[in-house]
Amino acid sequence: MLTAVKNQLWVCLLSVKYNIMREMTNRFTFVTNIVFMMLNNAAFIVQWVILFKMRGEIGGYTMREIMLLWGLTASSYGLSHILFARAFTLHELIVNGKLDAYLVLPKSVLLSVMTSASEASSIGDFLYGLVVMCLFCFSVGRLFLFLLFTVTGALIMTALALLAGSLSFWFVRSEMVGVHVVNTMISFSTYPDGIFHGTARFLLYFVIPVGMAVYWPVHVMVSFDLAMFLKVVGYTVFLMAAAVYVFYRGLKRYSSGNLMEARM
C-alpha cells in the first residue's frame, strides 16, 4: 500500500517535471511568459493605489490586506495550474474521448490526467503572490501560513474545476461552465468581501467557495484564529473528496460508453 502511494507520487512528480521541461523548450518564451504574467498582475496595484487614495479602508481592508488577498489568489491559481492544469480543461478530454489513453495505465486515472500538463505563465502567478506577500507583510509565521493556504486554495480551485469539468460526463454541452466558474471565483477573490452584502455574501461562501479559499485565510494570516484555520483545512478536504467522488462516478459513465454519441 505504502509503496503504491510512493510510486504514484513519484510518477506525478516526474510528470510535472517533464511538463515544465516541455515549457522550457524555448527559454525566451518561457521567461517572457513568467515575467510578463508577474507584470500583468502587478498592473492591478495601480487600481488599489487609486481606490485607497479615496478612502483609507475598503470593506474593512487596508492596502496590506488587499495585497495579501491578491497574493494568495495569484499563488493559489498559479500552483493549481503548475500541478494540475489539465483539471481546468477536463471537459475537452471527456468530450473528445481522450481519457482512453489514461485508462490503459496502471495508475490513478484522475492523477495521471490532472498532472499531464503545466502552464508556464502560472509560474509567474505563483511567484508574484510570494513576492507581494514578502514585500507587503512579511513575517516567518505568515509566510508559512501563506504557503499552506496556497496549497488549500489551489486544491479548492482544482476541485471546483474538476466538479465543473465532470459535468461533461453527463451533459456534453456543458463545456463552458468550468471556465466560467473558475473565472467567477477569480473575479470575486480579488475584491474585499466587506463590499458585498446579503445574497452575494451567501453565494461567496456556499456556491463559489471564495470565502474558504481566500477570505478566511487572509483573516487567519492577519490575526490567527485556530477554529477558522481548521475550517479551511476541513472544507478543502471535503470539497476535494466530493470532486474525486463525482469524477469517478462520471468515469463509470464514460466507461459504459454513454458518451459515445458525442464521439461518433
Partner: peptide, 19 residues
C-alpha cells in the same frame, strides 16, 4: 511518447509508471 524528451527519458518515465 513525450516529444520533447529523449527516448531514454521516455522509457524511464514508463518504467516509473509500471513500478
Amino acid at each position: 511518447l513525450w516529444t520533447h524528451l529523449t527516448p531514454y527519458d521516455n522509457f524511464r518515465f514508463f518504467g516509473a509508471i509500471y513500478d
